[in-house]
Design a protein around this nucleic acid. Structure first.
Ligand SMILES: [Mn+2]
Ligand SMILES: [Mn+2]
Ligand SMILES: [Mn+2]
Ligand SMILES: [Mn+2]
Lengths: 227, 227
DNA sequence: GCTATAATTTCGATATGCCTAAATTCTATA
DNA sequence: TATAGAATTTAGGCATATCGAAATTATAGC
């Protein structure tokens, strides 16, 4: 099935919204794609006709099995490109996303497999997001926002939202990457900034910034017990 | 100026036809793009409106200065991708063209420069076609079809048409690449096949095949004097 | 020069994707 | 449970890029 770049973007974004929120409302999709809700309704009806989504009028969409499997191929293409750009072409990690946004629509199956091969069949992109396998398996990488960690708790960065280049550049300067250890030393009162230990340095992070950094808390089990 | 992939393809193909034949007739373009002449007329009028081509109704088009400079960027993107795919990703040289046909529309200026850089600012793609520089300089590489060489004459392969994968695969097996030395041992009568020396081997090439291989004859000067 | 044929353009349609404005449906709160 | 406001869809349009069929223009051979 040969899909237009537009349809590919719809599928990819429905996928990303539904894994977080279940059924995807028209307006959520519209906002994400920066088009009007009316346009989304039209396209979504078409996608339903193609059997790629299940559209319950007035109650949002969700991908069908075949829609999801196509969506995963786009996500795979996007993240393979991001990693390839960063690793092989030394593109700064904050620029990878925009470039991949175009390249994802120009990657054949064969070339995707080739990229995966030279990258050693990676499972995560430069921002820590999981790369689906060729047959559509995705690792759930989870994590909680860094600003949800109480003072005194430590963790490992697992993923970082990649849609704000300036923020990524800033985090890069601070040495905050997926895989790095961080510890929250203390949190200023009234939703204030966090003092964070990164390697041997101490940095102060604003709430906004910390919210973009997802970590695996080393105390996750204790947390769960308390709840 | 942000151009649609379609417009990019028009510009690229006008460029390639006009360097060989001057003003490009509507039908020539139509055949090359595999669309109808009526469609070409419409698009060409639009391109003229954008100041990218000069359209003399009933007498074909040619690129304006700005149209040509844009066309050269697409050609550059295409050929950089081809070379990169073959050299860095070890894609077979007969598959590079189709992949590049898509990727050429998804290459930012910055990434093009990066590709050029890691490739060492190359001047030719895997098939021997010149890669325009960032500011649009192109080397003329010329050459004559191998089947135009008289028996006894030798030459160096300069370029090979890249639009027929099977033919490229065949030539690859014979060891015929840009840069290789070939010598025409003899030519069978009545437009017959050529016996050709390649390295230490002798091969028999049909006319069709030989016509796709452009060579720099080592006797070009003598040829010119005779004419 | 005239005319048949080929090349090219014009005309009327179609498909895709998008928009604005108006109508409909849903839902939360009173 | 009625209803105001929000979410969503419907209706009518527009731009792009394509097509087939008909009309026009160019040109080569007489
Ligand atoms: Mn991304
Ligand atoms: Mn990413
Ligand atoms: Mn090519
Ligand atoms: Mn080539």
């Amino acid at each position: 099935m040969e899909l237009s770049p537009q349809i590919e973007d719809y599928l990819k974004n429905i996928y990303q919204l539904q894994t977080r929120y279940g059924r995807v409302p028209t307006t959520a999709l519209a906002e994400r794609l920066a088009i009007t809700a009316a346009s989304v309704t039209g396209m979504v009806r078409k996608l339903a006709g193609l059997g790629l989504v299940d559209h319950e009028p007035y109650h949002g969409v969700r991908l069908t099995a075949s829609g999801e499997s196509l969506a995963l191929q786009i996500v795979r293409a996007h993240r393979l490109w991001e990693l390839y750009l960063v690793q092989a072409l030394e593109v700064p990690w904050d620029q990878a996303h925009v470039e991949a946004e175009q390249l994802e629509h120009a990657l054949s199956q064969g070339l995707a497999d080739r990229l995966a091969e030279v990258l050693g069949h990676p499972t995560a992109d430069p921002h820590g997001h999981p790369i689906p396998s060729r047959n559509g398996d995705v690792a759930r990488r989870g994590g909680v926002p860094l600003d949800h960690l109480p003072a005194g708790e430590a963790g490992v960065v697992v993923q970082i939202r990649d849609d704000t280049p300036e923020l990524l550049r800033y985090l890069g300067k601070l040495g905050i990457y997926p895989g790095e250890h961080v510890a929250v030393l203390d949190v200023a009162p009234f939703e204030g900034p966090l003092r964070v230990q990164i390697g041997d340095r101490t940095e102060v992070l604003g709430r906004r910034v910390a919210g973009h950094v997802m970590v695996h808390s080393e105390a996750t089990l204790h947390e769960r017990q308390r709840v």
